[in-house]
Design a protein around this nucleic acid. Structure first.
Lengths: 125, 125, 125, 125
DNA sequence: GTGGTCTAGACCACC
DNA sequence: GTGGTCTAGACCACG
């Protein structure tokens, strides 16, 4: 369901974390649906359970899931985090736009690109 | 001329490197203009000379400067790197757009934001 | 009668235990009144009977209820536990006050807050 | 400088975290002052470096310190976090007050206690 | 079986 | 030397 790339410079726990963020925001994991258990995920992806747990802990800290010791981890309602999530992406957009400005790329070109570029919906990693 | 933020999670050498990239792309450092010497820069910003050296090495590898042994480092013609640089920013934009798609944010909103947002606040840290 | 929050980090048995403590201290469960049976409570709140049992055991250990084998559990006289219970809360208050001191918050402000804050919002979860 | 109690039910990393929070809030660790290194603290208290790092990571997440890889961890300006910290203590006070209300303890008594109780300024743990 | 904590020891990038 | 990541394996409380 999520993809891990060991050659990526980003730490594994962060890739796991972001992967589930997207699944939750996209509604592919529904409210109160049980997440895979730490051990299950660890064996499935051949990742150490501690690394998975780190990802889950971060997801909980950031409000995407809640964990019940002894029962499992569960997704929160997408509505609770959607706004914050989109705001985070806009912040990343800000950084990109600042660099376009420095490079002298006209906003008009960028806006056009935004409207016409089609996402493949598939990571090429 | 460039700004270093020690609290930033990005390594110092990367901040130095990116800082000069922008100066060169923006045309603030002209073609064949001499870059500050490693020692000069190191003492000015109180940064380890090794760190500056690493930044210069990366700048050379990526084609933004060229070194003449015994004379110093010099900026290349902005035209030589501009296209590649802008292309890199578009790649980062692609990643951001992909996340907007997942989050269900309409491209129309994003494009409007691109046209209206004003990025005057360079580095508010 | 009591509220269980699965998202709470506190274990369920502790929430059950505390819930009944408050009911007994508040006088809502009277002296020698029969407590709900373990099975009854378990099915009503969809909680594992073992968990209820654990809560009842703790309540008995701490002197809030007494069990009569074959008949059930019963609340003790509120007077028997009230003082000890209030003393426990004062101990928790001590810890909070110590932290206020460290933070430099004047006792005067805290005392005012105590008098004016209204705690009508029981469990806003 | 801080005290760790292994018999405490609270995890070690949390005790370390809270200990430094208080030192920073109390002004005993000044702005931009270097924190003990992870390894240093670990050997001093005979705690695994990973556990210390967990505490430092939490301190950074909560905004009490900032870490510079390769250089060390440093305290932020106490002014930046003081308000948030006091607000957290007031929240804990709320919980205590709610329990006092349930127990029927008059707010007047509690307020008097707040004004007259003297903290020993010394943990008895 | 579940999440959570902790230890031990390794490796990496950065300075 | 520093912080940071990851693995391996153990133990605990909870359900």
């Amino acid at each position: 369901m999520i993809s891990i790339n060991y050659r990526d410079s980003r730490p594994v726990y962060e890739q796991v974390c972001d992967g589930f963020k997207k699944l939750i925001i996209a509604g592919l994991i529904k409210k109160d649906e049980k997440m895979p258990s730490v051990r299950e995920l660890a064996s499935q992806y051949a990742i150490n359970p501690n690394t998975i747990q780190r990802a889950y802990r971060d997801l909980e800290t950031q409000g995407y899931i809640y964990s019940v010791p002894g029962k499992g981890s569960f997704a929160v309602d997408v509505k609770e985090v959607s706004d914050k999530h989109v705001a985070e992406i806009y912040e990343r957009l800000d950084a990109v736009l600042a660099d376009f400005d420095v490079a002298g790329e006209p906003r008009k070109n960028v806006a056009e690109y935004v409207l016409n570029q089609k996402g493949d919906c598939r990571d090429k990693s």
